[in-house]
Simulated scan of single mutants.
Amino acid sequence: MLIISAAATPLPRPPEADPALAEAVAVLESQVRLQKLDFWVRNPDYLADELITEFERTSDPELLEQAHDILHSDEPHVRRYPMTRFLFGAYEPLDDALAVLRSADLVVRRRHGSPGRVQRHDYYLTRTGRDTADRVLDQAPEFEYFVERTRFVARLFDGLRGTQLKDRQYQQDEYRDTVIGSTIDSIATRVYNRLRQYAAPAA
């Protein structure tokens, strides 16, 4: 829910002709995009590598500092929640989590395509879902890390479609070469060594 809340595009009005979406306030289009954003939230080492790449492209020192903070904390080990390599990259079954969100009227999923051939899943955040996401820190401050991280990842990759995110992740050899059905390995050591070529950020 936090990823959908952070990355969903606001709707000017709920979609018509679908009573279940009468309270929808935003939508995150495509399961591919949701899965790829989830991967960066759950794998701080891969996120740090993207930050270094962005730093090399833009020369923005804040990006390098953020990568430094991740790699010099316990995040790559304590916060890492591995995902499995599937046909189209990192994948996590979503049905159980979405069933919980739907039963609480927080998120509604809609499939697009023909019977037996789903082309896209869209995830609609309801007004209740938005209110719940906005109140998370008040009611459960222990979720602060995940609230901030999902918002950060959503901002960093804002405007990129799911296929573009997938292509970026496939540029990582470890990610691309993982056997289908196996867990995608950490790259923390390699990314740390990559960071070392740059001066440490000023304190």
Rank of each mutant, 00 (worst) to 15 (best):
I3S: 11
S5E: 06
S5H: 15
A8E: 07
P14R: 05
P19H: 06
L21M: 06
L21W: 01
A22K: 10
A24G: 02
V27P: 07
V27M: 08
V27L: 07
S30L: 04
S30Y: 03
V32T: 15
Q35T: 11
D38L: 12
F39S: 08
F39E: 07
F39G: 12
V41M: 14
R42I: 03
R42D: 13
R42E: 09
P44K: 10
D45W: 07
Y46D: 09
A48G: 14
I52L: 15
I52M: 10
T53F: 06
E54K: 13
P61W: 13
L63C: 06
H68L: 00
I70F: 02
L71F: 00
Y91W: 14
E92G: 05
D96Q: 15
D96R: 15
L98D: 06
A104I: 07
D105V: 05
R109Y: 01
S114N: 02
R120N: 03
H121S: 13
H121R: 03
D122T: 15
Y123V: 11
Y124L: 14
Y124C: 13
L125I: 10
T128P: 09
G129C: 10
G129N: 15
R130T: 08
V136W: 15
Q139I: 07
A140H: 14
P141F: 06
Y145D: 04
E148Q: 15
L156P: 12
R161K: 04
G162R: 10
T163R: 03
Q164G: 06
Q164Y: 04
D173C: 00
E174S: 10
E174Y: 01
D177Y: 00
V179K: 11
G181Q: 09
T183Q: 11
T183P: 00
I184M: 03
S186C: 09
A188D: 07
T189A: 12
V191M: 11
V191P: 09
L195I: 07
Q197M: 05
